[in-house]
Amino acid sequence: MTAAKGTAAGYQRPPGGGAISAQARSSQIRQVIGRMLDSKKAVIGVTVIVLFAVLAICADFVAPYGVETMTGDIFAPPGAKHWFGTDDLGRDLFSRVICGAKYSIVLGLGATLIGAVSGVAIGSVSGYYGGPADEFIMRCIDVIQSIPGVLFNMALAVAFGGGFFNTMLALGVAQIAGTARLMRSSILNVRKMEYIDAASSINCGDWRKITRHIIPNAFSPILVRATMSVGTVIMSAAGLSFLGLGLPVDSPEWGALLSSGRDFIKKYPQMMLFPGLFLLVFVLAVNMTGDSLRDALDPKLKR
């Protein structure tokens, strides 16, 4: 599948040639993008993500009220004046949910980036060099993965402490083990390919082999995982905030909004309904994109 595709691309690539290899890769990327444009799922997913991103960036202009502005209208029901109603302090929920998008999206992207970069680095070293270093790293990963994910997230969140940056760090660190394992196994597949022998035979250094030949060819599972994990991280962050471990209850992050709305669920369900719906729709869009990305990168499954 990916390996076979990689072989073709790898053979076309002369050892030092930038131009041809860039061309080969760009056409491959164009193919993948083309396949994604064909799928309705991808188009919907990406559109929703872009919409949310724009909403998050322009939150300050779009929001009809300030995040902390108390309008004096306590527990107003959803209506023309307050689209999603207001909360227990009279703050406009629509404005808060939109600003929450900023927190959740940055948190999801940041944590995924931390996890993916460290995981790829560790997994590549482990998979490429093998030997005692690999053995040690894998045993550590075994240990980490024996702790149920939610508990590990929770323990790290407690250790790092609350707040935006710490939560992002905790969730990012929690991602490392899984990414490293995936990267390692995909490196092990690529390492056996002939083009790696070819690279070795022309005296290509380890660093160059890893960065130019192995990682690009072993990357597609990581890309899919990273995409999906943006959604997972946002959900985990919301869960942590809901338990009072992530962001402070008063911040407009979606989980924190849900947490502060919990006490009023019986009488004023708007405080629970809308942040949750936004969370759901965004995670759904991320998963749709991830799904179709996987199909686009691995056409064997589809046709």
């Binding site: 809901f242 849900l258 019986k266 629970m272 969370l279 759901l280 759904l284 998963n287």
Partner: peptide, 22 residues
């Protein structure tokens, strides 16, 4: 399945409470 993979469990729980209990 896509919808429920993307639904946070605790939110779903609270929505069930809202609907079936309250």
């Amino acid at each position: 399945s896509l919808l429920f993979v993307s639904t946070p469990g605790f939110w779903l729980a609270l929505m069930l409470v809202l609907l079936f209990a309250y």
